[in-house]
Design a protein around this nucleic acid. Structure first.
Lengths: 226, 226
DNA sequence: ACAAATGCAAGAGCACTGTTCTCATTTCGG
DNA sequence: CCGAAATGAGAACAGTGCTCTTGCATTTGT
């Protein structure tokens, strides 16, 4: 067999993918805290010890799921953005990004909780692995703000966010501290509203989430336009 | 012994308080996910089974800790508010509430994660027990908005929050859907900013949290004043 | 004052979990 | 075909939540 190492590698990759698929299903069904390597191994018909050949530890699995969740969110937002006419106004693109994020969160509540809720146990996601995936949508949102008139950043803005504005990824977007502040603030508001809705922080059936989110977007828009 | 039943009851209450104290220390040190009834029992020198006489289950313990955390936050905010001059402007009171919340969260990160982060396992906090404690600070914040000129609520605001505005607790504050929307939105922004800071959603050492939170408060203030 | 009822704590046990070994088998490369 | 590497299985350790039974001590009723 000429491609023997290939097959080996493919089987390994395939099994790894299968593990991630099962883990994703468990995550979606029961939440991150209920994730069990043993249960995944059981479902795959392998011994509980065998799974450690493919996943280093439970934390490693969580890290991979976090990245996968960020990717899933990013893809969903991208898809919704492409459905928009190319000449859509920046603010419409902004609203589309926020709405897409909310709809994704509603469809994937446990994934959302995993990436935007409180971290699990003593688990701390390694930033060097999750950051790239995690900043994808916020960067998309910031890209929305790069056009238009640019007010001079205040001294306070420079003090608070000057360092972040010099980040190389952000530099390509040419967003200064002022725009950065407005974009980040709007993003915080959007995520906060989704969090409040999903985690039922204001109770169940006490308000109309759809209509309320529209109003949130109005406020976010006002923040963005300064 | 005339007060025999009294002694009995007092011991029970004292033990229960001791359990909560130890649980609170564990929560503060290691986080909610690391909470273990067995570990608490061990530290108290009792058998793991004995603790079930005082705490029904781990979920029950979590519920009590959630309520305790809300109380702790409420007390901290109250204390900071009392340090304010009685004739302080509503907006200053608003800023004081938000700042007190942030400082409490920084001092008690695990407690904050417990009440404003993603819920634990299959655990779902019973609203009828946590709601009263949980709405305490938001209500305080809404009380801040009851003075001043009251713009007519828009149709969208009535649609989104009309039902919540009719809540009996809120009715005593005489806040209509418009003020309710502004207050809730501002609160979401404040909590979101604290969450982002504590959970390091924008990375570590990438910005100045103190200065940034000041800017967040400016935005929140703008939302509140309409 | 004695017996009965009750409260409380301990111990053992069940079914899980993550993780790490060792050992046997399978599979692949030369 | 044979040695080496990859792979899976099984057992084991130390934890977890939770339940049930058993024994002791104290309180209560007579």
């Amino acid at each position: 067999m000429p491609d023997a190492p290939g097959i080996r590698a493919r089987n390994r990759a395939a099994l790894e993918a299968e593990i991630m698929a099962v883990a994703g299903r468990h995550l979606a069904s029961y939440g991150a805290a209920a994730l069990s390597l043993r249960a995944i191994a059981r479902e795959l018909g392998m011994a509980s010890s065998a799974i450690y050949r493919y996943v280093e530890s439970r934390d490693e699995l969580l890290t991979r799921l976090i990245i996968a969740a960020f990717d899933s969110l990013g893809d969903a937002v991208d898809a919704d953005l492409e459905a928009l006419p190319a000449e859509a106004a920046p603010l419409d693109r902004f609203r589309a990004i926020a709405s897409a994020t909310r709809h994704w969160a509603i469809r994937h509540p446990h994934e959302f909780a995993l990436i935007y809720g409180s971290p699990v146990p003593g688990y701390h996601a390694p930033p060097e692995r999750t950051q790239a995936a995690g900043t994808r949508v916020p960067l998309l949102l910031l890209g929305t703000l790069s056009d238009g008139d640019v007010p001079e950043p205040t001294e306070a803005e420079i003090r608070a966010l000057g360092r972040m504005a010099q980040d190389e990824q952000l530099a390509t977007f040419a967003v200064g501290p002022g725009q950065l502040r407005r974009g980040v603030t709007a993003w915080i508001l959007v995520i906060g509203a989704i969090t409040a809705e999903l985690f039922e922080q204001f109770g169940r059936d006490t308000y109309e989430p759809d209509a309320f989110f529209d109003l949130i977007l109005d406020d976010a828009q006002r923040i963005v336009t300064g």
